[in-house]
Amino acid sequence: MRAKSFLAALTFSLAGALVAQDTVEAPQLSKTHNYIKLLAQEAALPSLRGQEKFILRESWWSGNLAPGKAKLIQLQLFRRNSYQFWIAVPNRKAEPLINVYDSSGNLVSSEAITFDTGNLVSTVIQPEETGVYYLRVSLKTTVEDAQDWAVIYAYR
């Protein structure tokens, strides 16, 4: 029931954001990012339900990615927890990537989750050690335009 209400509120908020975008010639960056964040949150909903649900953090990251470039986000993670990350971009052909590296720069084994739209992807990891990790966000294919992006995360 609560999830349905949340989805309804989310859809309502998105509708508002889209109307705002359509009526403003040069939308503010933060509005675009908020819209993209909503996409990521919508994709996250199934993971936030049920017995083994993840708990979504309010903190999130955003920015702009040029084709072929990557950015790193530093984050402290704790052993025995699982973490799920979602990245969203506006262009459905952009195919964003999100990968996790340990403090030595080694790629961490993860479970990649794909959606039926090419502008979203998610990954789940279970850190083997407590420490700092790096999320590497990038675009898989060469799209013409740089993409605004948003990353959210949850733990359990």
Partner: peptide, 29 residues
């Protein structure tokens, strides 16, 4: 219309296996 379509395990094919965190060209958020 967003729905989950696939889960793949282990390592991503599209990501470098190792990155040099001291690389001055890396961009950190």
């Amino acid at each position: 219309a967003i729905s989950l379509i696939g889960v793949t395990g282990a390592f991503s094919q599209d990501a470098p296996a190792k990155i040099n965190l001291d690389d001055p060209n890396l961009v950190f958020v």
